[in-house]
């Protein structure tokens, strides 16, 4: 008979609950505050009032749209560059390929502030006006590594002779790419896209340095409003951002082929 694994000491479960509580209580409080509407009399009730206020705030809604456009643009660029760089690194074991591989990961570990400053001075050097494009370009740079990572994870699980098999069956290089390689990588590319979208959507520091006048994204807007004072409207805005992020993660984890991919990455 199979022996049962020894139970972990009971205090470990206590620690787990504490950690979960420490993590979720602030979030719960935020959701609660966003839903609480105080009457002048001092009584309060649950209502969607602050969400109404939020959605009727023209400037905020514009920055939300801007955030979405920037996230989509940056993710799109990152997907194209990331996928092809992963393919190149995987397929061609040329000299210095490992160095390149490591270099593409540098953006994951480099302090964000350093990176933001570097980008800012780069744009200044190029005399490139700060605006939509600079933000999209900056976000794309750090998203590329994430796309390359998910695509590489998928490539590692694939039969390495797939392209030769397609070629052998008469396909040209381009047909092999369109009919075999890209379809097979599709879940990984979509996962990379969603991850990039989230990173870009959440990003504050790099956006703060590289955005020009009038291109404030939602996190920037949230930050500048916070300086004036915490209002229930800001809570509603934060909840909205959380819902978008968590929603995307949920879609991601339910997608066919993506789950295995994320699990693979852990090992």
């Amino acid at each position: 008979m199979e022996k049962l694994r020894p139970a972990s000491p009971s205090w470990t479960r206590g620690v787990l609950y504490l950690v979960v509580a420490a993590f979720y209580i602030p979030l719960a409080l935020m959701v609660f505050e966003s839903l609480r509407f105080k009457e002048i009399s001092g009584d309060w009730s649950f209502s969607l009032h602050w969400y109404q206020v939020l959605f009727s705030d023209q400037a905020l809604m514009e920055s939300l749209l801007r955030s979405v456009v920037i996230a989509a643009g940056a993710s799109f660029i990152a997907c194209i560059v990331g996928t092809f760089s992963a393919l190149a690194i995987h397929k061609y074991r040329f000299k210095g390929v490992l160095f390149l591989d490591y270099m593409s990961m540098v953006s994951l570990v480099i302090p964000e502030l350093v990176f933001a400053l570097a980008l800012l001075s780069w744009f200044a050097f190029l005399k490139f006006p700060l605006g939509y494009l600079t933000v999209i370009f900056s976000h794309a740079t750090f998203c590329i590594a994430f796309v390359a990572m998910t695509v590489t994870a998928r490539l590692n699980t694939l039969d390495k002779y797939l392209d030769e098999a397609a070629h052998d069956l008469g396909a040209t290089q381009l047909q092999t790419l369109w009919k075999v390689i890209l379809p097979v990588l599709k879940p990984a590319i979509i996962a990379g896209f969603i991850l990039s979208f989230l990173l870009s959507f959440d990003d504050f520091l790099i956006t703060f340095y590289t955005s020009g006048p009038g291109t404030d994204t939602l996190p920037i807007k949230l930050y500048s409003s916070m300086k004036i004072g915490l209002t229930p409207k800001l809570h509603a805005l934060a909840v909205l951002m959380m819902v978008i992020s968590v929603g995307l993660i949920l879609i991601l984890s339910r997608m066919k082929g993506v789950r295995e991919l994320l699990l693979n990455e852990d090992s």
């Binding site: 039969d159 002779y161 797939l162 030769e164 397609a166 075999v180 379809p183 097979v184 599709k186």
Partner: peptide, 9 residues
């Protein structure tokens, strides 16, 4: 191919 290399999709 030794590993068959069937197209998984």
């Amino acid at each position: 191919f030794q590993s068959y290399a069937l197209f998984p999709h």
